[in-house]
């Protein structure tokens, strides 16, 4: 089984789908000869030609609008955003034109909007954001945030095959840091299904994307102290896997919710509410939130480190919660 980085796994997933299905095509800025700002589509134009690997003007609304229009004719566009921070430029197309199409007039929109998000690479306020919550709050969209190379390939393939608009957030910190065995064959990871990344009896941590690795690192440290952390990787942030959330709480009775985006209006609030509705009787302690600060993402490394949740923060909160 070949070893692939997270980025290579995404590339392989899109490549395989383009080989498999002639209606799949890529559209975005600098994705052709240059291969994309992060080289996700490197080599695609040589294989699939400029017809199916389309370089566009710097026009995010046009990219999404054109992808949607093409999807109405039965195509399956994969639109790249150079940075997910720039998704605000296409906000209206995504939330009003695309997301409401099926509800309003029965038009499926089988398109994927994908691109790099996330911090810890010292990208500053406009190259580090995690803007997924705007879209989690918009019915009609699916929001996918893989944490591993295996999932990244399986989820991008599932997203391309889905008949709904999917926003696929690739964590740029993971692009080249995560490496694992990824099957060469055609497999998908279904949308809307969480996974248990590590089993543990004492308390649960619910998280996704780069924070899964923060949680796993903390779990190693805590294990040495005899605290066994269960790490749940959501994989899809919309729709949420309510059952997996409730199940882990029923197993461990204590829960930390960890996310890289800002605290207020974050997914932790929603997950807390789900736990309240589905597993209130199973709780033996307060629900703990670990999140980024309520501020823009700062640029300077010591500031960014302070801004982001770290393994030590998880360890500290887990100790407190375990003792509760």
């Amino acid at each position: 089984m070949p070893t692939l980085t997270y980025l290579e796994a995404i590339r392989q997933g899109i490549w395989e789908e383009m080989e498999r299905d002639p209606t799949v095509f890529c559209i975005g800025e600098d994705i052709g000869i240059y291969g994309g700002a992060f080289k996700v589509t490197d080599g695609f134009i040589d294989r699939f030609g400029p017809e199916r690997v389309i370089d566009t003007p710097i026009a995010e609304s046009a990219i999404v609008g054109a992808a949607f229009g093409a999807s109405l004719t039965g195509m399956r566009p994969v639109a790249e955003f150079q940075f997910m921070d720039f998704i605000g430029c296409a906000f209206n197309q995504i939330t009003n034109m695309v997301a409401k199409a099926h509800y309003r007039w029965g038009a499926p929109a089988p398109l994927v909007i994908r691109g790099p998000s996330g911090g810890n690479v010292h990208g500053g306020p406009f190259h580090s954001q995690n803007p997924e919550m705007y879209f989690v709050h918009t019915p009609g969209l699916k929001v996918v945030c893989p944490a591993t190379a295996y999932d990244a390939k399986g989820l991008i393939k599932a997203s391309i095959r889905d008949n709904n608009p999917v926003i696929f957030f690739e964590h740029k910190y993971l692009y080249r840091r995560i490496k694992e065995d990824v099957p060469d064959d055609d497999y998908i990871v279904p949308l809307g299904k969480a996974r248990v990344a590590r089993s543990g009896r004492d308390l649960s941590i619910i998280t996704y994307a780069a924070m899964v690795h923060v949680a796993l690192e903390a779990a190693e440290m805590l294990s040495k102290e005899g605290i066994e952390l269960e790490v749940v990787d959501l994989r899809t942030v919309s729709p949420l896997d309510r059952e997996a959330i409730a199940e882990t709480v029923r197993r461990t009775n204590k829960v930390i919710i960890l996310h890289e985006h800002v605290r207020t209006g974050g997914i932790a609030g929603e997950i807390s509410a789900i736990i309240n509705e589905e597993a209130f009787d199973s709780l033996d302690g307060p629900i703990v939130r670990l999140t980024a600060l309520d501020s823009p993402v700062p640029f300077s490394p010591p500031q960014e480190e302070f801004f982001l949740p770290k393994p030590n923060d998880v360890v500290r909160e887990a100790r407190k919660l375990a003792a509760y």
Partner: peptide
């Protein structure tokens, strides 16, 4: 027919995309 939304101009890239889809076909 593509259903319009209330904000203006948004149909323009969408219709362009329809033509793109047809051309790819």
């Amino acid at each position: 027919v593509v259903a319009p939304i209330s904000t203006l101009g948004d149909l323009i890239p969408v219709l362009a995309g329809v033509a793109l889809g047809a051309r790819l076909q």
